[in-house]
């Protein structure tokens, strides 16, 4: 038996909206630890890792480890019928091929349930070792969204360079070049507005802006975003999910031919 109840159902809606552009089908792995999901985009350029810890749910029952295979476009269609303030319950029998979504309005005057057919998905699972990154940037997620969107008007790729001076986002295109520099800025009364740059080594990497823009679909999950970079590793763009876990996007760099 698998049954979990999430009071802040809007979190689930936001997570699915944030990843459905990159991933069509995915397994949600359920264990006593919580719900997790790992999936690559169809080109194997980006990887998504989601964790929702069990203690963030009002009720969490998972008798044995199960993988629930689902089409994210269908999950999105179903979750769109839930109100933003609804409490969401997910349940599945051990041997069943259906996942039941139950949506309860806050004052319990409307309760809906929708059964969704599950899929058998074979997915490649990658082991991502913990790494010490050369540079870690924490900045307002809205600012990162704006930078990615603005640079997309000029070019297709972004060079992210971290130095003592700050973090520079650069692009070049047919109409010209653009650079945006963000400096460390610790706004003590509003920690969510601050930009914090921790750098062990200067690092500069090139990425496809199309993917970066897709990651920023997660902006509503968190007021800040953490970007981790090392010269020989994919970039990690992480949105914390309040008291529950995280949504991380890994993106392989582009290199000079």
């Amino acid at each position: 038996m698998f049954e979990v109840r999430l009071v802040q159902g809007s979190l689930l809606k936001k997570v699915v909206e944030a990843i459905r552009e990159l991933v069509t089908d995915a397994n949600i792995d359920c264990s006593s630890t919580g719900l997790s999901l790992q999936a690559m985009d169809s080109s194997h350029v980006a990887l998504i890792a989601l964790l929702l810890r069990s203690d963030g749910f009002e009720h969490f029952r998972c008798d044995r480890n199960v993988s629930i295979g689902m089409n994210l476009a269908n999950v999105s269609k179903i979750l769109r019928t839930a109100g933003n303030d609804d409490i969401i319950t997910l349940k599945a029998d051990d041997d069943g091929d259906l996942l039941t979504f139950m949506f309860e309005s806050p004052n319990q005057d409307r309760i809906s349930d929708i059964e969704m057919k599950l899929m058998d998905i074979k997915s490649e699972h990658l082991g991502i070792p913990d790494a010490e990154y050369e540079a870690v940037i924490k900045m307002p997620s809205q600012e990162f969204l704006r930078i990615c969107k603005d640079l997309s008007n000029i070019g297709d790729t972004v060079v992210i360079s971290v130095t003592k001076e700050g973090v520079k986002f650069s692009t070049r295109g047919d109409i010209g070049n653009a650079n945006i520099v963000c400096r460390q800025n610790t706004t003590l009364d509003k920690p969510d507005d601050s930009t914090i740059i921790q750098m062990k080594e200067p690092v500069s990497l090139t990425f496809a802006l199309r993917y970066m823009n897709s990651f920023t679909k997660a902006t509503s999950l968190s007021s800040s975003v953490t970007i981790s970079m090392s010269s020989d590793l994919p970039i990690v763009v992480e949105y914390k999910i309040a008291d529950m876990g995280y949504l991380r996007f890994y993106l392989a760099p582009k290199i000079e031919d």
């Binding site: 690559m40 080109s43 194997h44 350029v45 980006a46 990887l47 490649e124 699972h125 990658l126 082991g127 991502i128 070792p129 790729t157 090139t206 496809a208 590793l233 994919p234 890994y250 993106l251 392989a252 760099p253 582009k254 290199i255 000079e256 031919d257």
Partner: peptide, 14 residues
């Protein structure tokens, strides 16, 4: 020109 690397070049399949 830049070549796009794949995520599977960095992490091992478990």
């Amino acid at each position: 020109a830049c070549v796009q690397l794949s995520i599977t070049e960095f992490y091992r399949t478990t």
